[in-house]
């Protein structure tokens, strides 16, 4: 038996091919997070530089004025839009990092809607033997019904999130 499995090993070419693909995938993922970080810091810096330019330009004018009042700088519409873009980029970058420390899936997506429209809540892990061959594809959602992830459901009783190995019990909502 052991010899049978021993003969099923991968070729050296297959091993190196898969490793190369995985390296490329990981590099692509890192580039996406690096770009988000660049946006996170570069755009606010650009805004700060433009604001500094406005303040410098205003200073000679205020110095010429005899009225003593504080100078306020108001962002124009273009700067406001740039700030919004920077905020979105920062949020995206933070999300990429937070994804690695995300809470358990059952905390994020505790509901599942079944094919008959019935809605159930994800319960505790089950110790029952679950026959995965009976599983049907479904979608687990968050409380606001705005985000969802793929999952599998068995006989309206058990749920497993995609990529996970643990089965949870389902309860009526």
């Amino acid at each position: 038996m052991h010899a049978a499995y021993a003969a099923m090993g991968p070729s050296d070419e297959a091993t190196e091919r898969v490793l190369a693909n995985l390296r490329a995938r990981q590099s692509a993922g890192h580039a996406t997070r690096r770009n988000a970080n660049v946006l996170r810091f570069a755009v606010p810096l650009a805004i700060a530089a433009s604001v500094a330019g406005i303040v410098v330009a205003l200073r000679p004018a205020t110095q010429m004025q005899t009225v003593a009042k504080s100078t306020t700088v108001e962002f124009n519409e273009q700067d406001t839009k740039a700030i919004e873009v920077a905020d979105e980029a920062a949020e995206s970058a933070e999300s990429a990092v937070m994804a690695e420390e995300a809470p358990a899936l059952y905390e994020l997506y505790p509901y599942v809607e079944l094919s008959d429209g019935k809605r159930m809540t994800v319960g505790p892990k089950t110790t029952d033997e679950v026959d995965a061959s009976l599983a049907e594809d479904a979608v687990a959602t968050d409380q606001a019904h705005e985000r969802s992830v793929p999952c599998q459901v068995v006989q309206d009783r058990y749920l497993r999130y995609e990529g996970d190995v643990v089965w949870y019990e389902l309860k009526k909502s």
């Binding site: 499995y5 099923m8 090993g9 991968p10 297959a14 091993t15 898969v18 490793l19 995985l22």
Partner: peptide, 10 residues
């Protein structure tokens, strides 16, 4: 990968 690819492949 180096630790586990062989086992996963089999």
């Amino acid at each position: 990968f180096r630790r586990n690819f062989d086992a996963v492949f089999r």
